[in-house]
C-alpha cells in the first residue's frame, strides 16, 4: 500500500472522512464487543493465570476501541463523544462482524473465537500501520504489539487443546465446527471497505489471506487438527444485521447509561 494517493484518486479524497467514519466505527465496535465478551470471563477462568490473561486481552481491546471511538467521533464532527458512540447506539447501528458477538461457550469455544479474530486482527494491523491515514496508522502501530501477544496466546491454546486430552480435543473440534463459518466475514470487504481499499486507506484483505492461511495451517498442524473444509461464510454484522446475541450483550453493556442518562462517577 502506498503512503501517497494515486493522482487519479486525489479528487475523491475530500470524501474520505465520510467513508472513514463507518470503517473506524466498525473497528471500534469489533474491539468493544469482543472486549465485553472476554470480560464476562472475569472471575470464571479455568485457572488464575488464564482468568487474568482473558481480562488482559479484554482490556487491551477496550483501550483500542477507545482510540477508534475517539477518532470516529472526531471524523463525524457532530459533537458525539466516544461514550455516546459506545453506549447510545442500538444493535442495528453496531458494525462488528458476527464472530465477536458469539457467546463465550466453554474455554475452547472462547479460544477458537479469539484465534480466528487474532489471526485477522494481527495481520490487519500490520498492514494498517502503513495506511495513508496517519491516525489509523498510529492506532494500528500501538495495537499491533498487543495483537501479537493475543495471537501467540490463542495459537498456543489451540495447539494445547487440540493435542491435549481426548476431552480437550473433542471440545476444540466442537468449537471449530461451530465458529469457523464466522471467519469469512472478517476478510470479505463491504462496499465502504472496498472504496477505502481503493483509496489506500485500508489494506486489501485478499493480500492478507496467504499469511493468515499459512498461520492457520501451521497452528492446526501442531494441534494435529485437520484444516476445516471451506465453509459457507455467515455474514451481516458489518452491515448491522446481527445475531440475537448482540441485543442481550448491549442490554448489559449499556444498562447504566440507558437507565440513568448522563450518569457519571
Amino acid at each position: 500500500m502506498s503512503a501517497t494517493l494515486p493522482e487519479t484518486l486525489a479528487g475523491i479524497v475530500p470524501a474520505a472522512p465520510n467513508l472513514l467514519f463507518p470503517f473506524v466505527l466498525q473497528l471500534a465496535d469489533t474491539s468493544l464487543i469482543l472486549a465485553h465478551r472476554l470480560s464476562e470471563w472475569c472471575g470464571h477462568g479455568p485457572v488464575l493465570e488464564q482468568d487474568l490473561a482473558l481480562a488482559n486481552i479484554a482490556l487491551d481491546l477496550l483501550g483500542e476501541a477507545r482510540s477508534y471511538y475517539q477518532y470516529a467521533a472526531e471524523l463525524e464532527g457532530q459533537g458525539r463523544t466516544e461514550d455516546d458512540l459506545a453506549y447510545l447506539r442500538s444493535a442495528v447501528e453496531y458494525r462488528n462482524p458476527l464472530l465477536v458477538e458469539q457467546p463465550n461457550g466453554d474455554f475452547a469455544h472462547t479460544v477458537v473465537r479469539q484465534f480466528l479474530f487474532d489471526n485477522f486482527h494481527y495481520h490487519l494491523l500490520q498492514a494498517l500501520k502503513e495506511s495513508a491515514d496517519a491516525q489509523l496508522a498510529a492506532i494500528a502501530e500501538k495495537s499491533l504489539k498487543e495483537a501479537a501477544y493475543h495471537l501467540k496466546w490463542s495459537s498456543e491454546w489451540v495447539i494445547r487443546l487440540g493435542d491435549g486430552t481426548a476431552e480437550s480435543r473433542q471440545r476444540l473440534d466442537k468449537a471449530i465446527a461451530a465458529l469457523w463459518r464466522f471467519a469469512g466475514e472478517l476478510t470479505t470487504p463491504t462496499t465502504t471497505e472496498t472504496c477505502l481499499q481503493r483509496l489506500g486507506l485500508v489494506p486489501d484483505y485478499a493480500a492478507l489471506l496467504p499469511a493468515m492461511e499459512a498461520h492457520v495451517a501451521h497452528v492446526l498442524g501442531e494441534a494435529t487438527v485437520p484444516v476445516p473444509e471451506a465453509v459457507f461464510a455467515q455474514q451481516g454484522g458489518k452491515m448491522g444485521r446481527h445475531s440475537e446475541h448482540l441485543g442481550y450483550l448491549l442490554a448489559e453493556l449499556q444498562y447504566m447509561q440507558r437507565s440513568y442518562p448522563g450518569l457519571t462517577w
Binding site: N56, L59, D60, G63, K145, E146, A148, Y149, K152
Partner: peptide, 13 residues
C-alpha cells in the same frame, strides 16, 4: 525480540 509485545501493553494501564 518480543519485548514490546510482552511488556509495552502494561505501560498505559
Amino acid at each position: 525480540d518480543e519485548a514490546e509485545a510482552f511488556f509495552d501493553p502494561a505501560a498505559d494501564k
